[in-house]
Structures are given as structure tokens and as C-alpha cells.
């Protein structure tokens, strides 16, 4: 009989635990695995208004990648990956490094940098929509101060609107990155700093050559998190630009929701969702796997 190495007694004695866990199994298998599977299944059927069982192969996928709106949303995701993820990492690192330099009011500043994390994306979207409204927001105010030629109307133009979204996202997401990197910085052996100082390494060089490499795991965690954030970004867009102007700020998450509930195109929506599922798995499974390997037998953090 196989016995658990940790608990000693054979596992069949754990029947109350197994019983208690069965509803969780049901949720996991039916609502997580099952629904995801059904979504993938639907993407191969001729479903439009209502789900049907007629099999059409990759038709929806071929159509999907011929849809301008979908391709725009993918391109926008790419733009946000560069601007938003990189922006959050850079700003978050600078904030964390600054707060780590024994500054006054550290707690107050940290509270200020992090509070956007506590508000809804809807709130963030609405606030920045107003701030970037050229007639009423920052542009109007600065022009009112006498700088007549000042323009800040990114949300109004197809080419710039997605960058406006990135700024709003940066406002909300930089604090989280800061907190993660600050925790990483605080975990670094203090004598590393002293050793560098004794050797006369300039501060910037210490950061680049010694500290940043030490932060790699924290940076990787933050980057993964930020990327996941973009993939699921829906409410921010709805509240801030509603995908506009035109479809300039569409994102896959919104594309799928629109096709599911407004446009009644289940085939396109489920095909998009399946693409999303595969790309997320492609990122996350290796990340989790590497993390599990690195940790070896150690307990997860």
C-alpha cells in the first residue's frame, strides 16, 4: 500500500478530506476545465446567435484574423506590451529605488504611489478620460494659464489614443510594480551595498551591475503580472474610450465581450477567447514550470 511520505498513514483514511474536496473538484472540472473546453469547442462550430453543433473547422479563426477590429486589438496589445509593461517596470523600479534610499516620508509616499491600485479600472478610465478631454482637462487648463499652443488630446486621435490608455494604465499599475521591486530590494543583503562602497563603485554602477541582476526574479514576476493585466484589460477601455476613436483602442478582451453580448457572434468570440487561452497558457505554463524547477523542494512563496 502506498503511503504518503508526509503524513505517514495511508491516504484512504483521509476520506472526510476527500469528501469535502469533491465540490471543489466539481467546480474545477466543470466550471474551469469544462467551460474552457466548451468555449474551445464552440469556436469550431457554426454558432452565431446561439450555440449550434454543426462543425465548421477553422472557419472562425480564418475569419477572425481577417477581421480588422481583431487585428487592431492584437496590435494594440503589442503596443501596450511595450509602452505599459516597460513603462510600469521603469517607473516602478525608479520609485522603488528612490524609496529605498532612506528618504523622509517614505510611508506617505508609498501610500500615494500605491493608492490607484485600490480603485476600480472604471474609475481610472473615467478620470483619465476627463483629464485628457481637450476641452475641459489638462490641455484646457494649461492653455488657460497662457500656454496657448499646448496640446494634450491623445484620446481624440486614432494614432495616439492607445498611448493615452497606456498612461492611465501606468498610473494604476506602477505602484504594484514598485511594491514588488521594493520587496525585492529590501531582500538584498545589506552588506552588498557596503562592499560596493568600500570598493568605490559609483552608486549608479552598483545599481546596474549588482542590484538589478539580483532583482531579476522580482522583475520577471512583475512583468508576467503586467502582461496578464493587458490580456484581461476590458473595463479600463470601456470606461475610458469605449474602444474609440473608431476601433483605435480595441483590445482582445473587449473584442470578445462585444462579440459575445452585443454583436451576437459567438463563433468569433469563442475563437478569440481560444486564441487568448492558448497565448496565456504559452506564457504561463513555462513560467510556472521554471519557477517550480527553481524552487525544487522548497515551499511556494
Amino acid at each position: 500500500m502506498k503511503t504518503s511520505p508526509r503524513n505517514g498513514p495511508p491516504r484512504f483514511r483521509h476520506w472526510p478530506a476527500a469528501l469535502a474536496l469533491s465540490p471543489v473538484w466539481a467546480i474545477a472540472l466543470l466550471l474551469f476545465v469544462g467551460t474552457a473546453g466548451y468555449t474551445v469547442y464552440l469556436s469550431f462550430t457554426a454558432s452565431r446567435m446561439m450555440p449550434v453543433n454543426e462543425f465548421v473547422g477553422f472557419e472562425h479563426y480564418i475569419k477572425l484574423f481577417g477581421t480588422r477590429r481583431w487585428n487592431t486589438s492584437l496590435a494594440n496589445m503589442g503596443i501596450l506590451c511595450v509602452t505599459y509593461v516597460l513603462g510600469c517596470l521603469v517607473l516602478g523600479f525608479l520609485l522603488a529605488a528612490a524609496l529605498d534610499r532612506k528618504v523622509r516620508f517614505e510611508n506617505t509616499l508609498r501610500t500615494i504611489f500605491l493608492y490607484p491600485q485600490a480603485v476600480s479600472f472604471v474609475v481610472t478610465g473615467l478620470v483619465w478620460q476627463w483629464l485628457m478631454n481637450p476641452g475641459l482637462g489638462i490641455q484646457a487648463a494649461v492653455q488657460g494659464w497662457g500656454w496657448e499652443s499646448f496640446t494634450f488630446d491623445w484620446t481624440q486621435h486614432r494614432g495616439t489614443a492607445i498611448y493615452a490608455v497606456a498612461i492611465a494604465g501606468l498610473w494604476q499599475g506602477a505602484g504594484l510594480t514598485m511594491i514588488l521591486l521594493l520587496a525585492g530590494l529590501r531582500g538584498i543583503d545589506h552588506s552588498l551595498w557596503q562592499a560596493a562602497r568600500v570598493e568605490g563603485i559609483p552608486l549608479w554602477r552598483t545599481y546596474v551591475s549588482v542590484i538589478l541582476p539580483e532583482l531579476t526574479p522580482a522583475i520577471a514576476t512583475a512583468a508576467t503580472l503586467l502582461f496578464m493585466g493587458i490580456v484581461r484589460t476590458y473595463d479600463l477601455i470601456v470606461a475610458m474610450t469605449n474602444g474609440g476613436p473608431g476601433s483605435a483602442t480595441e483590445l482582445p478582451a473587449k473584442f470578445i465581450m462585444d462579440n459575445l453580448f452585443d454583436r451576437m457572434n459567438i463563433g468569433a468570440a469563442t475563437a478569440g477567447a481560444s486564441v487568448m487561452l492558448i497565448s496565456v497558457m504559452a506564457v504561463i505554463v513555462p513560467v510556472l514550470y521554471i519557477r517550480a524547477l527553481r524552487k525544487g523542494g522548497r515551499k511556494p512563496v
Binding site: L21, V24, W25, A28, L29, L31, F32, V33, G34, T35, A36, Y38, T39, L42, M228, V231, R232, Y234, P252, A253, I256, M257, L260, I266, A269, T270, G272, A273, S274, M276, L277, V280, M281, I284, V285, L288
Partner: peptide, 19 residues
């Protein structure tokens, strides 16, 4: 079970929501 649950946490809601 734990692996399934954790993995599900990473997947956007759009994948589950219609079913």
C-alpha cells in the same frame, strides 16, 4: 486539483464566461 485551480486563475474570464 491545486494545479488546475492555480492555472485557472491566470486565464482571463472571457474564456469561461459564455458557457
Amino acid at each position: 486539483l491545486f494545479a488546475i485551480i492555480v492555472l485557472a486563475g491566470f486565464i482571463p474570464l472571457q474564456v469561461f464566461v459564455y458557457p
